[in-house]
C-alpha cells in the first residue's frame, strides 16, 4: 500500500472513532452504547486476564481447524464431483438447493448431539464453509482449459498426473476465491456457535458480557473480533497472492 493510501485509511478509522464518540456521548442508546474510551479501557482490563486470551485462542483455533477441514474435504469432493459429468449433474440440484441455507439452521441439532463444545463449533464451521468450497472447486475443475488437458494427454500423461499437475492448478484461482470468502465466514460461524450454542471462545464471552450488562466489555470483544476478521482476510489474500502469482489478476504484483 502506498503511504497516501495508508494515510487515507488512518483518517477513515479516526473519523469513525470520532463519530462513535459523538454518538455515544449523545446518549442515544443509553448505557447500551459505551464510548470508545470506555470500551478500550474495558478491553485493556479484559486483555490482562488469561481467560480472555484463551477465548481468543479457542476462537481462532476452531475457525482455522474448521476452515482447514472443510478445505480438505471440499477440494476432494469438488474434484471427485467435477471430474465426472454424470456425478456433476446428479449433485447439481442438491448443491444449489443447499447453498442458500445458512449453516445456523443445524446449530440446535449439533448442540443437542454434541453439547456446547468446541467439537460442536468446529462441526458448524466445517459445514458452513464446506459448500462454497465444493461448488467453487467443481467450477474450477470444470473450467480447466480443454487445450491444456489435450496437451497433457498428448504427451502421455496419465489421469492422476493430469489431475494433480494440470486440473488442480487450473482450479486454484476458483479454490482461492472460495477460501478468501470462507475465511471470515469461519470466524463468524465460530462466534455464532459460541453466542447461540454456547461453544467456547469469544462468542460465549459476548453472550456472558451481554447477559451481565457489561457493555464496554461486549464492545471490546466485538472490536477484537473485527481485528481478527481483518487478519483472517489479510492472511487469506496474502496466501492467495502467493499461490496465484501467475494468475492474470495478480500478475502485475509478480513481475
Amino acid at each position: 500500500m502506498k503511504p497516501a493510501q495508508l494515510t487515507r485509511g488512518a483518517i477513515g478509522v479516526l473519523g469513525a472513532l470520532v463519530l462513535w464518540q459523538l454518538v455515544s456521548s449523545a446518549h442515544l442508546a443509553g448505557d447500551a452504547f459505551p464510548s470508545p474510551v470506555a470500551t478500550l479501557s474495558a478491553l485493556a482490563a479484559d486483555a490482562s486476564g488469561a481467560s480472555f486470551w484463551s477465548a481468543v485462542g479457542e476462537t481462532v483455533g476452531v475457525a482455522l481447524l474448521g476452515l482447514l477441514g472443510s478445505a480438505a474435504a471440499g477440494i476432494l469432493a469438488g474434484i471427485v464431483i467435477g471430474s465426472s459429468p454424470a456425478v456433476r449433474y446428479a449433485t447439481l440440484a442438491l448443491l444449489e438447493f443447499l447453498k442458500p441455507i445458512p449453516p445456523i439452521v443445524i446449530l440446535p441439532l449439533l448442540v443437542l448431539i454434541l453439547g456446547p463444545t468446541a467439537r460442536m463449533s468446529w462441526l458448524l464451521v466445517f459445514i458452513g464453509c464446506l459448500l462454497p468450497i465444493i461448488t467453487q472447486t467443481i467450477a474450477g475443475v470444470h473450467d480447466t482449459d480443454p487445450v491444456a488437458r489435450d496437451t497433457a494427454r498428448s504427451y502421455g500423461m496419465g489421469r492422476t498426473e493430469i489431475l494433480f499437475r494440470v486440473v488442480l492448478p487450473s482450479a486454484m484461482p476458483f479454490i482461492g476465491t472460495a477460501m478468501r470468502v470462507a475465511a471470515p465466514v469461519a470466524l463468524i460461524v465460530t462466534v455464532v456457535a459460541g453466542l447461540l450454542g454456547g461453544g467456547p471462545g469469544l462468542g460465549q464471552g459476548l453472550y456472558l458480557a451481554q447477559s451481565s450488562g457489561n457493555y464496554p466489555s461486549l464492545y471490546g470483544q466485538v472490536l477484537v473480533l473485527g481485528i481478527l476478521g481483518l487478519i483472517f482476510i489479510g492472511l487469506a489474500r496474502a496466501g492467495e497472492r502467493r499461490l496465484l502469482h501467475w494468475h492474470p489478476s495478480y500478475r502485475e504484483a509478480a513481475v
Partner: peptide, 20 residues
C-alpha cells in the same frame, strides 16, 4: 491412444502452456 513417439504443438500457445 497418444503415441509415445509423437509430440503435438497447438495453435493456442497461451492455452497449451501452463501459466503457473
Amino acid at each position: 491412444g497418444p503415441p509415445p513417439e509423437m509430440a503435438l504443438v497447438f495453435q493456442d500457445y497461451n492455452r497449451s502452456l501452463m501459466p503457473w
